[in-house]
């Protein structure tokens, strides 16, 4: 019984490893089955995050192998049979200094690129446009202040209304559209509780906090034109799992065309509000 459990476990392990290699090669703005690694980077920030992750991963692998090797050495050479009389050695100043200083050096090696990355992510240097993101329980709304400030809501497409090919829990009724080859500043805030606007391929995962404006930025190369998905990543109440993010990245020309269309489409929704506005003024 227990032996067969082990065999089963090994089979699962081998199977998942095989799947995993496939998953490593896969790349889209959406997750794929058995994925073991990041989605492909679509922005310079995400590319840097992936590189930084890989640096740390290799350092970790080296440390794990070193510790594992030492443990195996101790288990084989110094077990009770091989070494019946344990040494009374309790100090070795050089060794103790070494294993204090070396980790500090490793931390410094990690800290420098980590701080550089933090500052790189922090703010757009020279943004050409701004997208405003406002979270609500439980949907997102987007505003284009540089394009006459039209605004729209983006809601989950419920399971029973999905069209073939659309992704359950990731598809929305109105995708947010962004132009490629453009440095875009994201300004994020919330209408109620704290949410988090997270699109893994962009390397953006930013809390939206009521009463605060947070900032992030994206710049997507035209070779990465496509659709990118994300989800709310801060527990925000009952429908936390059901307020996804879908971003269409299109060429600059297509973006202009979309803006023209969207202005008309979403202006209608705003009309009653504008009438009230004019009346009170």
């Amino acid at each position: 019984m227990t032996k067969s459990r082990w065999i089963l476990f090994c089979l699962v392990l081998v199977g998942t490893a095989t799947f995993g290699l496939d998953a490593l090669a896969a790349s889209t703005g959406a997750p794929v089955p058995w994925q073991m690694y990041f989605r492909d980077a679509a922005t310079p920030v995400m590319q840097d995050i992936v590189d930084f992750h890989n640096l740390i991963l290799w350092i970790e692998v080296a440390i794990v192998l070193l510790v594992l090797g030492l443990m195996l050495w101790i288990i084989v050479k110094f077990n009770a049979k091989a070494n019946p009389v344990p040494t009374r050695t309790t100090h070795n100043t050089a060794l103790e200094i070494a294993w204090t200083v070396v980790p500090v050096l490793i931390l410094l090696v990690i800290a420098v690129p980590s701080m550089k990355l933090l500052f790189f992510m922090d703010k757009a240097k020279n943004p050409a446009m701004t997208l405003k993101v406002v979270s609500h329980q439980w949907y997102w709304s987007y505003e284009y202040p540089d394009h006459d400030g039209f605004t729209f809501d983006s809601n989950l497409v419920p399971e029973d209304q999905l069209k073939p090919g659309q992704l359950r829990l990731l598809e929305v009724d109105n995708r947010v559209v962004l132009p490629a080859d453009t440095e875009i500043r994201l300004v994020l805030t919330s209408d109620d509780v704290i949410h988090n606007w997270a699109v893994p391929s962009f390397g953006v995962k930013m809390d939206t906090v009521p009463g605060r404006l947070n900032e992030a930025w994206v710049k997507i190369d035209s070779k990465n034109i496509g659709t990118y998905y994300g989800q709310c990543s801060e527990l925000c109440g009952v429908n936390h799992a059901f307020m996804p993010i879908a971003v269409d990245v299109v060429s600059k020309q297509d973006f202009q065309a979309w803006v023209e269309q969207a202005r008309k489409k979403f202006a209608k929704a705003d009309e009653p509000l504008k009438v009230v506005d004019a009346g009170t003024r």
Binding site: P31, Q35, Y37, F38, L169, N196, Y229, S233, L235, A241
Partner: peptide, 12 residues
């Protein structure tokens, strides 16, 4: 790494 958020009862 693939992007699954925390604290969700149902996932893509």
């Amino acid at each position: 790494l693939a992007g699954m958020p925390r604290r969700i009862a149902d996932y893509p």
